[in-house]
Design a protein around this nucleic acid. Structure first.
Lengths: 152, 152
DNA sequence: GGGAGATACTTAACATGTTAAGTGAATGCG
DNA sequence: CGCATTCACTTAACATGTTAAGTATCTCCC
């Protein structure tokens, strides 16, 4: 079996960790986790979103998102109100405080991203992201849902 | 600010998830998590390893590894004995049962890896891994340890 | 219009990620 | 030697990942 430290999953894991290691300290100073930051960024780009939509955008599973939204709401960084037309759905939006917090984190975050881009090279970065997208595409619909095949 | 869904961390996260989604069901059938599998694979390649060394190889943090080793030991998939020369260190090795379990998982795992390679293309896969390695290298020693700079 | 099934979300339970603190053993140096 | 420091690992505490189950609401079709 292939040396597992050279496997694709490990390569991806190490690369992502190398990147996130740059951001975590700054986020931490502002009392935010990586996932909370993802949610705020996702919300900042839109007026409001349903929870399911937000989960897709921020790439979080429902249960994780539920917990995080509960906490962010308690910290008054987001707001929530149930949709009129469908009582099951709730519309989530970023609060003024949330916007303010984002504004205080964004400069450092941008600077870090710029540094990474500079070190790795903008062109290579674009290439890498292109390949990552293709990888994702090439695996789409493989083991995704319960494709009609086996038990159940 | 850049559309965060197109940011490098998100690209890496989505790509890795697309890959891991393929493996998890099979591992799950054998009662293994991704991390437990990493540890077994790392141990299978060597005689024995210290915990710290294993953490580096399997790319796990100490606390996670401590817990997982405790559980794997309880399931008799690994063995542990303290080093004679240094009572602080413990040598970890895979057990016979562990080897047997690996043998039962490996074929499916190999098949999945082959399918991924085939779908994405072996050459592109090699290129991708090359780029991921370069990314990691270009960020090495940036925000890594407490580089002599700030507080403390 | 009413009940079975689908939907949107939440809770629960367990495993890991992450940082800080704790514990016992080794080391170095005065 | 003695003891402060370092080292290897473990525990603790809290946040998220992951799957299964639960709850309320809505839809659709008879």
């Amino acid at each position: 079996m292939r040396d597992f430290s050279r496997s694709l999953p490990m390569s991806l894991l190490r690369a992502r960790e190398a990147v996130m290691r740059q951001f975590r300290p700054s986020l931490r100073e502002h009392g935010l986790t990586e996932q909370q930051w993802r949610i705020l960024r996702a919300l900042a780009a839109i007026e409001a979103a349903e929870v399911t939509e937000l989960a897709r955008t921020a790439f979080l599973l429902g249960p994780s998102l539920s917990r995080i939204l509960r906490d962010l709401e308690a910290r008054n960084l987001i707001e929530r109100k149930t949709a009129k037309a469908d009582q099951r759905r709730s519309m989530v939006s970023i609060s003024k405080e949330g916007v303010k917090l984002m504004a205080s984190v964004a400069p450092t975050s941008e600077a870090i991203y710029a540094e990474i881009t500079s070190r790795f090279g903008a062109r290579k970065l674009a290439e890498l992201q292109e390949m990552l997208g293709e990888l994702e595409q090439s695996l789409a619909g493989l083991g995704a849902g319960n494709e009609a095949s086996a038990e159940e």
